[in-house]
Simulated scan of single mutants.
Amino acid sequence: MDGKPVFSMTNRWLVASVFGTLAIAVISAATGFVLLPMAQSDPQFQGIWNAICSAAGVSRHWAQNESIVFPAVDPVSAVAITPRTLAKNNPDAVQRGGILATRCAGCHNASQVIAPLLAGQDAAFVYKQLSDFQSGARTNVIMTSMVKGLTDRDMRDLAQYFASSGQLISGDAKGIGSEPPIVAHGNPTKNVVSCAVCHGGVDHKAGAPFLQGLSASYLSAQLSAFAAGQRHNDAGEQMRNIARNLTKAEINDAASYYARLKDSATDGTRN
């Protein structure tokens, strides 16, 4: 021992440790509170002060004449679905919808693999998707142009027509066999419920599509789009949260299973 006090500026080890710790703290703070937030394009991160406060979770109430609610990057669906939405069949609406649906037959028929079969589909689901295509909450070059000029009544009529034009049945009735685990049980370890809970088989959620008979390529494409955030018209990001937790094998299993289920109609003439 040389008798020098430990806590002294003459102790080079103390000085080195103190300044080293301070340097690490400054670099970490600059990276976490300034550099990383400023790399984001969202409005709340614009400017160093906003970046620091946003990273720290501080409210921006000090900003005069500025809303603290920031708009979503992408348009979201404005359609609220309840169990009563289009639940009552209207014969006049079905007749009007049948006339409008003549434009849909070229794509939405049993022979197509890139467009969903709509015969027997849930009316609320069809109405919501048409509305979302019109508002931009869901995008598709063909569908965006097809819904231009449709009134709200037109979309409701189309939805009721398609819902009444077929009768989708379960895979058990066709002797398909047991469902894959993701369809029958989901994946509890990832907080993913079974597909059958919302899409028919066990139960049906209002506004959720029936998946029986839809092509494997269409279903896998939609699940992948939800997982990547390219499709974002699901209420509360429910499908996005589910799809992000699905493996590629689970997506393929679910898509292949539902594609094997057939519509009860065999004449192949439904739109």
Rank of each mutant, 00 (worst) to 15 (best):
E237R: 12
K248A: 13
S165P: 08
I99Q: 11
D154T: 02
K205C: 05
H204R: 07
G236T: 13
V193H: 08
R138M: 03
R138H: 04
G201P: 06
E250W: 01
S215N: 08
W49D: 10
F7L: 14
Q40M: 15
D74M: 10
F19K: 03
I169N: 05
G120Q: 07
T266Y: 08
K205P: 02
P43M: 11
V18I: 15
Y127V: 07
I68V: 08
S54R: 13
A259K: 01
I251S: 03
T269P: 01
W13G: 05
A265R: 13
D74Y: 12
D203F: 14
A105R: 11
A63G: 06
Q230D: 14
G207S: 12
I52T: 02
V94L: 09
L22N: 06
M146V: 05
L35G: 05
Q121M: 12
Q160H: 07
G120F: 02
G98H: 01
Y258T: 02
S194A: 15
R260P: 00
N187P: 07
L261N: 04
E179G: 01
N191A: 15
A115G: 06
S178G: 10
Q134N: 13
D92K: 00
R260L: 09
F45R: 07
K248C: 01
I114A: 09
D74P: 04
T31Y: 15
V113E: 13
K4W: 14
V202A: 15
R138Q: 11
G229T: 01
N191F: 09
C53D: 14
D122V: 00
V141F: 10
A87W: 00
P43W: 04
C104V: 00
A255G: 07
K205R: 14
S8N: 15
S8H: 11
S165G: 12
K262D: 06
V69I: 14
K248L: 10
G175Q: 03
N252L: 08
R138W: 03
S178A: 14
C53K: 10
A101F: 00
A173F: 11
D92M: 01
A80M: 12
I48N: 03
F33Y: 13
S77W: 05
A265F: 10
P91C: 06
L35W: 09
G166L: 05
Q160V: 00
A259P: 04
Q134I: 05
I176F: 06
A23D: 05
